[in-house]
């Protein structure tokens, strides 16, 4: 079957999609967007986290046909998405949350990073000043097999603090 949906603001189409195929497979193997990672294919690790009509979901558990006509944001589009949302003159190619992950040393092998970035960015969008408990809760569906959780916590705190600073500058 053919599926058509929007990914990172652009219309994408894929042909010959098997009916049982996941959104994750279509993104990675048919649309040339391998940023979302495939690890468990059972919703346990969160490395495939994308936004589907704004909601963070496991792309491995969405049937590709269910995404028909809908809006998907992947890690590849995160910088652009954040730029439009924040209306900031953000420079460089990275979303603030991505820069914070680098600055805080929150990336080891990097396999979990795309999913964490999408989840963390959505948290800060929804809750600009998250408590540690809020961060833990929001990231509870994302596993890091390098177990770098403390640095990941640091990175999210840093991203939130920076967002708060720049919001105050605007005011």
């Amino acid at each position: 079957m053919r599926v058509t949906f929007t990914v990172n603001g652009r219309r994408h189409e894929a042909d010959d999609v098997w009916e049982g195929e996941s959104l994750l497979y279509v993104l990675r193997e048919r649309m040339g967007l391998p940023g979302s990672k495939n690890a468990c294919e059972q919703g346990e690790c969160g490395s495939c986290t994308v936004r589907l009509d704004g909601e963070p979901v496991c792309a491995c558990l969405v049937a590709a046909g269910q995404a028909e006509g809908r809006e998907v944001v992947t890690v590849e589009g995160l910088a652009e998405y954040a730029k439009e949302r924040d209306g900031s003159e953000q420079t460089g190619d990275l979303a603030p949350v991505q820069q914070a992950f680098i600055d805080a040393g929150a990336v080891q092998c990097g396999f979990c990073t795309p999913g964490l970035l999408v989840a963390a960015d959505e948290l800060i969008e929804r809750n600009p000043q998250p408590s540690d408990a809020d961060i833990r809760e929001a990231l509870s569906g994302n596993l890091c097999r390098c177990t770098g959780y403390e640095k990941i916590m640091d990175a999210v705190r840093l991203a939130a603090a920076r967002a708060d600073d720049s919001a105050q500058e605007v005011v």
């Binding site: 996941s22 294919e41 059972q42 919703g43 496991c58 491995c60 558990l61 049937a63 269910q66």
Partner: peptide
């Protein structure tokens, strides 16, 4: 298939091959 959080696991792991999937 609603949220797919049960169904897709079964399909991904080849535990289920329905003739029709109904979204």
């Amino acid at each position: 298939i609603a949220g797919g959080t049960d169904v897709m696991v079964e399909i991904n792991f080849d535990h289920r091959r329905p003739t029709h999937l109904m979204d």
